[in-house]
Design a protein around this nucleic acid. Structure first.
Lengths: 207, 207
DNA sequence: TCTGGCTCTAGAATCAGATTCTAGTCATGG
DNA sequence: CCATGACTAGAATCTGATTCTAGAGCCAGA
């Protein structure tokens, strides 16, 4: 899809605009930042902004995908090593929170924009940019479920059960209502596993 | 705070505007509906809209509070009768989903606007309009936790654990990704209780 | 080397739509 | 009956997103 970019300078200014955008959106909010703001911070011209992104929403979407990629890149590495269901679930939950703590601006942006119309409208594009990874993870969940390593449940609830609480806690954090105390990721990982582990197994593993 | 409204007609037109707004927002999205759209559907004039709500965001916030009240009104009744922790948790989760199914437009609106800046900015106002109810519920959770009817956990995670999965599933539903199958509320209520019940107690109560 | 075509940058001009303003109308309390 | 404040109207203004026109820099092929 992406055609080859001829000049490196074009790519540079694209990045400058994205960086400026994250800065402005974090500081002022998406609706309140104007193209003029981004122009000033990035040093680009209006024409340049529109050349690269087409519209204000285009910036939001590109930035969203950019942050999502960072997030996934960092998760991918950790997941490849994990093989049993418990480790899989715990790793995903833990990583989600730890990553957010390490990249607060990007995380806040992702959390805030997730349901924003500007971004929701471009679902198609976002999926095609990141969908494989999620699809893959999802099918892994189903495999675990079928082999009895996870509680059998309607497929649509696995993701909500695994990440819903983390998402909710992180939202509260993103809006400044709570802090992310050290160790909170373990609390949520425990909870997620309590939710998803097969009924018969007690808390300790049976040797 | 609310000063007495002199005329019933004023109140009527206020309602007409809110109804029109819910209709337009659902149909076109919040950002895409213009004051002109709302004016046409409601039959009010621009001046009238601004007299009642001050700004476009004012409409969004008033509507948000309106829907939240509906939701809470309906929950309040059911909660008053419940006394043990398990029933409390299950009722809240179940109600959340059942109510959304019964009031899809209002539910979608609440889900979509929850993190929208327009609404987030007015947190203050929203809290003062609905805060008692939530505060009360929250303190009830803490009481249960202290008396050992719930797993002891950091206070900030109770709400996420209880409602996070439901919220996440409902978001997927609001965006048309999944359906709300009959009985799904039981699945989530079970899961919430699995997460929150004290470790030692098995599913059945020990008499 | 020259030319066409493409990416990219500039910034002025346009346009849509939110908000403000002025001028009333109407009901009520005094 | 008058003054007042809630309320309605709709024209005028203003802000900021988007579009448009022009031009610079660069590469490929003639």
């Amino acid at each position: 899809m992406e055609r080859k970019r001829r000049s490196a300078t074009g790519e540079q200014s694209r990045r400058a605009i994205l960086n400026a955008a994250l800065d402005c959106f974090s500081r002022l909010g998406w609706a309140a930042t104007t193209i003029e703001d981004i122009r000033k911070v990035s040093g680009a011209s209006v024409g340049s902004v529109y050349h690269h992104f087409g519209a204000k929403e285009g910036i939001a979407v590109a930035l969203y995908i950019d942050c999502l990629r960072l997030h996934q890149e960092s998760l991918r590495g950790r997941l490849e090593r994990k093989h049993d269901a418990e480790a899989f679930v715990r790793t995903i939950v833990t990583h989600h929170i730890a990553w957010s703590r390490e990249h607060p601006e990007a995380a806040r942006y992702l959390l805030r924009m997730r349901r924003e119309e500007a971004v929701a409208a471009a679902e198609q594009e976002i999926q095609s940019a990141t969908g494989d990874f999620i699809r893959e993870g999802f099918s892994r969940l189903k495999t675990y479920a079928q082999s009895g390593e996870l509680l059998p449940l309607p497929p649509s609830v696995y993701l909500p059960l695994m990440l819903g609480p983390a998402q909710e806690l992180l939202s509260a954090w993103a809006n400044g209502h709570v802090e992310l105390k050290a160790g909170i990721e373990k609390v949520l990982a425990d909870a997620a596993w309590r939710c998803l582990r097969p009924e018969t197994a007690p808390s300790r593993k049976v040797p």
